[in-house]
Each structure stands twice: as C-alpha cells, then as structure tokens.
Design a protein around this nucleic acid. Sequence first.
DNA 1: GTCCT
DNA 2: GGGAATGCGC
DNA 3: AGGACCGCGCATTCCC
Length: 331
Amino acid sequence: MAAKRKLAENPNSELIDFLHELADYEKNVSRMIHKYNAYRKAASSIAKIDHKIQSITDIKGLEGIGKKIAAKIEQYLSTGKIKKLETNRGDETGAAINQMTRVMGIGPTHANKLVHQEKITSIDELRSHPKRDQLLNKTQQLGLKYLEEFEQKIPRDEIKQMETILLREITAMDNLLRAEIVGSYRRGATASSDIDVLVTHPAVAKLPSLLHKIVETLTKQFHFITDTISIGDSKFMGVCQIDTSKLHRRIDIRVFPSEQYYCALLYFTGNDQLNRHMRIVAQEQGYKLNEYSIQKVGSTGTLSKPLPVTSERDIFDYLQMDYKEPHERNM
DNA sequence: GTCCT
DNA sequence: GGGAATGCGC
DNA sequence: AGGACCGCGCATTCCC
C-alpha cells in the first residue's frame, strides 16, 4: 500500500488557533466584526511562515500584525499564554454566546439575545428549551438540527459523486443548462466546508422560475436536496445529502445570465485573496471588477457597459495578468 | 486591531 | 399591507 | 486623529 503521508501540520498552529479564538470573541461577543477580520488577517500571515516562530523578530513587519498583536505574540512566546485570551475564556457568558453562534443562522445579535434574555448557556439547553420553536426562525432550526453534521468537512470524493449526479440531472432538465461546482473544490481542495454550484442558461432572463424548477426536481425527484434555507430567482441556499447513509451538507446554487457567468465563475472560485488582488489590479488599470462584470472606469468615474467576457481567461487578459488555473488560485 | 490618509 | 431596516451568510 | 475594512440576496422584523 502506498504510504499516505499526513500533511505536516503548520508549525505555528497553536498560535494561529489562539488568534482565531481571539477573533471569534470579537465577532460574536464584542460584535466587532472588523477586529475579527484583523485577527484573521494576522493569523493568515502567520500561517504562511513555514518554520516555527522563535522570536518576535520573525513576525515583526508581517502584514496585518501591529503593536497589539505583536505584544500578544511576545506574551505567547515567553509564557505560552495570552492574558486577553485567558480573560475571555473566564467569561462564561461570552463562552455561551460563542457556543450559540455555532448554529447556522444564529449570529452575534441573536446569540447575545439568547444568552442575556433567555439565559441559555449551552447548545444542549437550547435543544431542550420548551420555547425552542418560538426562539428560533426556520434557518436557525435547521442549523440546530444539523449542527454536528455541518461542522464536518466534505471529502473531495463525495463532492465528486455529487457533481456527477448534479450535472447529469441539470442537463437532463434542459440541455442548454450549464453547471459547475466552484469554491475550494474547483481549486482542488481535498475537502470543503460546503458545495457551491453555479448555473447558467442563455435565456435565464426569460426564465425567472428556472432556479425553482431545478430545486424542485432535485428535491422531489431525486431527494438530493433535503431542505431549503432560502430561495429567490438567483440564489438558493439549502441542504443536500447524496444518500441516506451520508451526512447532510450545505449547498448553494446560483444562477447567472451567460454574459455574467465567467465573472461569477472567477469570483466564486476565489480564493478571497486572489479576488481582492484582482480587484485592486483592476482599479489600477482603470477597471471595476466584481462577480457580475468588468467595466471600464471613465475619468469622471463613469462606468462603461460591461466588457464582453466569454471565458475566465478574458478577464485575466483585460488585466494583463497571467492566467491562473483554478488549482493555482490558492494564495 | 491595523492600515492609510 | 408594504416599504425600510436589520441580521445573516457568503 | 479618524475613517475604511465587499457588498449583495434572501428572510425576518420593524415601523408607518
């Protein structure tokens, strides 16, 4: 049997976990989303270092690391702990709020409400609460039902099987339909947190019920989709299961008109960092790029009509960037 | 919390 | 009832 | 010192 080498864990994973924990507290408990992002950014900078950080000089000047976080890392290096984190951990109310946000649909606002007003302190208490159904909306009830399943990563192989079914059934409905699974799966990841599907049809503007039909078929005929979280004309969010022996998974399906398809494909394939990078390059070159289109920006800030795009490569070309294959987009 | 102006 | 604002996820 | 940090689709709640 071929030796399956476990991917070496990041040498600084403990520090990265600490920063993520600080980030979560800021987002969920303090409701400071920008601090959350700041901690995440610092953590991702550190994740790029391939050796164990020995001293503060190893990280000084790293992107996203300023005085406060540098000081915390120094604390961690000399004492193995971070005071602020210990304090956060001692905050039982905060811990309860953090727990509540594990449920899809329960964000910082609702989590705070559940803990402060309803005095709920754990997921178990939420599950057994007599007024559970009044306390939670539809999305949150599904989130609670599938909490443990949604926290499991989806192996690439399982997504591959889903892809086979999805593409077959979608094209069977209408052979002008084209669909692709995007996200980290398209970038080659060995496991993903959800399934993100892009769909296009040359006449989508005339088919406002297209998405509803796709979803209905996948639900009623194939029992692939098990629950709907939300659905409109362009975006479906829901739950699917490849067969009853497998876990329930989060799935999103988005429909775009063909002239927007490749901008959407690029955007939803990501990763985030590449998207940001390309948006900035676009700005520098006098373009505006988003998930719908690429437009020329006039001197007065006026936007041109969306430029013609018939492939992802076209977008790289406009920006005079070298084309990157999906698997090369993990920045 | 960090970066930029 | 229905438009506006908010929460959430991505 | 002080503002930006993506912004948009959908569901729900708020408010007239």
